[in-house]
Design a protein around this nucleic acid. Structure first.
Lengths: 335, 335
DNA sequence: TAGTATTATGTAAGCGCTTTCATTTATAGC
DNA sequence: GCTATAAATGAAAGCGCTTACATAATACTA
């Protein structure tokens, strides 16, 4: 690989000048610039970004920590971030935190040691305090899918409460009166908020929520099945089910089917997230769209604006989910 | 951030000694080592990996290029690679190539400029010649999901032909005699190979393939629908359909349903890839498992063995797909 | 116990860039 | 034509490490 030194020699200028034309951050005469560019071209020169980072203490790369690299959710998010960054000439360095505290911290330290210019974090296991402390250091961070009041400006989050509300309201407007709710793990704030939205919609429609029709799962497909079994076993009537996410909805739907229930005629189901699978399961799932790709882009824009001085960008911290109507929820059957 | 210099000062030793205990690559007396470790601990020292990379020309990180960051396929692959690398203390730097030649080349150059120790590439648009040339340089590469004879040792691939064969054979053994085939884009080697496997199975069972029952799609779900329409429109009878991937199978299944065909009773369908969605669509898809996560791990192991001297590892270059029986294919109805 | 082989540590020269500061060259003003 | 100012370039000191190579300390041999 050619170095800047060889370029400078071939072009007959100093190192500093070559650096200037590369970075375009100081005046260089047109003639010299052309000589340098020609030399670069001729040598197939590519700056060594490691050396650039070391010397400039900037790396033009943003670190991303996600829980997992697989799964529809993170994929969309990463993709959103990467697209936005690449368009701005920034690169991404990705680490996985596996939802474990030690692993998340380790990932963060790795990204820091890699001289990232900023971090976009999707962390679950690490405490608010840790993040607040981290944010007070000199590595800029933006949190995705997590809201910490003291770090409000650094958070890109979804209005989960509204999502829960919308899902429920749709069913109520379709005439359902007996609704069951399948929650995510209540210690997770998003699960709790979605549930709160559900309650608000119920109250608003003058319905009281029957605690016997609440089941708490863990956001996994299998727990959707298990919860559905439980709900069915109680023998209480319900014509609609709102699930705190799509995967549980898929699990629930399968159990419903094996119990001879026809979705949506016997039972309407609405999910949350609008994962790819929502379009594949049968009947297609009515759900709440979680614009995670868009949120990823926004996190990237936050970095571009705040770290890379792209002032013009408009930011938005809280996203509003929207209802996606498909086939799994319908007006209640007459009679 | 503390630097090695501060550590050396606090420990009362030279830079070199600190470096030695960090890298554990030269003898240091037990006493000194402890002093150094204590100093590191006290300062919360973390080596700056950028500086390490620059000085050592090794980065302890492997570069990965995938077509996209989203989608079930790449997620599994990335996850497999990351797990294996992390366990060995290596890190991953990920770039997306978006299946475009310029973008793939750009991604590769970025990874090189980041001083990766090796590259794991999932590239589609770039030519064999480019890769052969790249491989002859001094950046080690391993290709995933692509087989180039001259680079056979650097390729981790799947026996697609066998997969096509197995999918078809399953149907034949279930008594089907009239099979349609929905292919991927034939210019892609995997699409072609899968199709060849199909033909082999047909021949082996003494059946001749009817070209009218072949449709060529583009591996997308929508083209699965379109192809299914075409096949149905011809009015030729067929009781089974083998699809070159799951997404097309999903599209096809949907069209079959709207045409009043009951899968699997009226029509058996088998897919290829065993994506997550295969478990979610209804009926659950019988398909060929593509162990992409495992192949990702293997690519990582290739790097660990060949670049990081972990001699003990066993490598495997070609993976054999296996049939996963679910509900979308069944024995042909009597009569 | 001198002489040699080992082991432990230090010195200093880079790695390929960026960036400050000094210097040279061009442009303008009178 | 001569100074005052601005524009273009160069020289050189790092960035935080690794790694020859040199040196000092210790252990072994006869």
């Amino acid at each position: 690989m050619a170095t800047i030194y060889q370029v400078s020699e071939l072009a007959g200028v100093s190192l500093a000048t070559v650096s200037r034309v590369m970075n375009n951050n100081a005046r260089v005469s047109e003639a010299t610039r052309n000589k340098v560019l020609a030399a670069m071209e001729q040598l197939g020169y590519r700056p060594n970004s490691i050396a650039q980072s070391l010397a400039s203490n900037r790396s033009n790369s943003v670190g991303i920590l996600v829980s997992e690299l697989h799964g529809p959710f993170y994929g969309e998010m990463l993709s959103g971030i990467e697209n936005e960054c690449r368009a701005a000439g920034k690169h991404v360095i990705i680490a996985a935190g596996h939802s474990e505290e030690a692993s998340e911290k380790d990932g963060i330290e790795f990204l820091i040691s890699r001289s990232c210019d900023a971090l976009i974090l999707h962390v679950e296991a690490v405490s608010d305090d840790y993040l607040i402390k981290l944010a007070s250091g000199n590595m800029p961070i933006v949190l995705i899918n997590r809201f910490i009041p003291r770090l409000a400006n650094n958070c890109i989050s979804l209005d989960n409460e509204l999502g829960g509300y919308l899902a429920t309201k749709q069913l109520l407007q379709q005439g359902h009166k007996q609704l069951a709710y399948m929650a995510g793990p209540m210690w997770k704030s998003d699960a709790k908020e979605r549930y709160n939205g559900h309650l608000r919609a119920m109250t608003e429609h003058g319905l009281s929520f029957n605690p016997a029709l609440l089941a708490e799962g863990d956001f996994q497909d299998s727990s959707g099945s298990a919860c559905m079994q439980q709900l069915l076993a109680k023998g209480l009537p319900f014509t609609a089910l709102v699930c705190a996410n799509d995967e549980m909805a898929a699990g629930a739907m399968e159990v419903a089917r094996t119990h001879g229930l026809n979705v949506p005629y016997d039972l309407s189901i609405v999910g949350f997230d609008n994962l790819i699978l929502a379009r594949y399961i049968y009947p297609k799932l009515t759900t709440i769209d979680y614009p995670i790709g868009e949120m990823g882009r926004m996190a990237a824009r936050w970095v571009l604006k705040n770290i890379y001085q792209q002032q013009a960008l408009q930011l938005k911290n809280v996203f509003e989910p929207v209802l996606v109507c498909r086939d799994s929820a319908s007006a209640i059957a007459a009679g």
